[in-house]
């Protein structure tokens, strides 16, 4: 059986190249793969395209990667009032941003995971989001065409994993993580607990093992603010 469980954070991100497109789970301080992000900071990868709802909380979450100028482009819904390092880089034009409505960010990633070549939606019609997108009328409603968002890696945070990669999440720390797990070529899960195969009830598996390629155990980190 192919080994999915890695013992060290640095080992699990060792092959991430400069210029990679990476999805990062998390919302509102919950469910961020903070240990994996710090491993990327240590590795010093550059020119990353980050796909994430937020852009960090000061030094927390993606903040350090912006501080170190490791990210060149972001696809995000709500960079956030505390994303101070991102905002500095953005003001200095050192990072570019595509702003996406939050649910559409989810659906564009899900389209990538689901083998769908885009979809039409009423969300964003008549707004800046529609700029440059194909528009048509479907069932009497103005719609725009949204394309899939794909990624080389998804960095996600889960509560429990078994060695196969079945995952469960804790409370609202689930958020973007299961969607990103489905959408990237390689999904790396940072988890609080590793449990024996078979100990997660099949009905309780949230992300099935097929979507998860690497697992590393680490004590979760939260950032205030």
């Amino acid at each position: 059986m192919k080994k999915k469980v890695y013992s060290r954070l640095d080992e699990v991100v060792a092959d991430v190249p400069d210029g990679a497109r990476i999805m990062f789970g998390g919302f509102g301080g919950a469910g961020f793969p903070n240990n994996l992000i710090q491993a990327l900071v240590r590795k010093g990868v550059k020119n990353i395209t980050a796909i994430s709802n937020n852009c960090g909380t000061h030094d927390g979450e993606l903040g350090l990667m912006f501080k170190n100028n490791q990210i060149k482009h972001v696809i995000a819904s709500f960079p956030g009032p505390h994303a101070s390092h991102f905002q500095e880089r953005f003001a200095a034009k050192e990072v570019t941003l595509e702003l996406v409505p939050q649910g559409i960010l989810c659906e564009r990633m899900r389209a990538a995971g689901a083998g769908l070549q885009g979809f039409y939606t009423t969300v964003g019609v008549g707004t800046e989001v529609a700029d440059g997108k194909e528009e048509r009328v479907l069932e009497g409603k103005r719609c725009i065409l949204e394309m899939p968002i794909r990624a080389d890696y998804a960095f996600i945070k889960a509560q429990k994993a078994d060695a196969l990669g079945n995952l469960t999440y804790r409370l609202a720390a689930r958020n973007f993580n299961p969607i990103m797990a489905m959408a990237a070529r390689t999904t790396i899960a940072e988890v609080e607990e590793l449990v024996p195969v078979g100990s997660i009830e099949p009905e309780h598996v949230v992300t099935p093992a097929i979507f998860v390629h690497r697992i590393v155990q680490a004590k979760g980190l939260h950032y205030a603010g």
Binding site: L99, P101, Q102, I104, T121, V123
Partner: peptide, 13 residues
């Protein structure tokens, strides 16, 4: 700053 859309466009739609 960059501004941010969040869920407002999905919700209003």
């Amino acid at each position: 700053g960059s501004g941010g859309i969040g869920g407002a466009m999905d919700i209003s739609a």
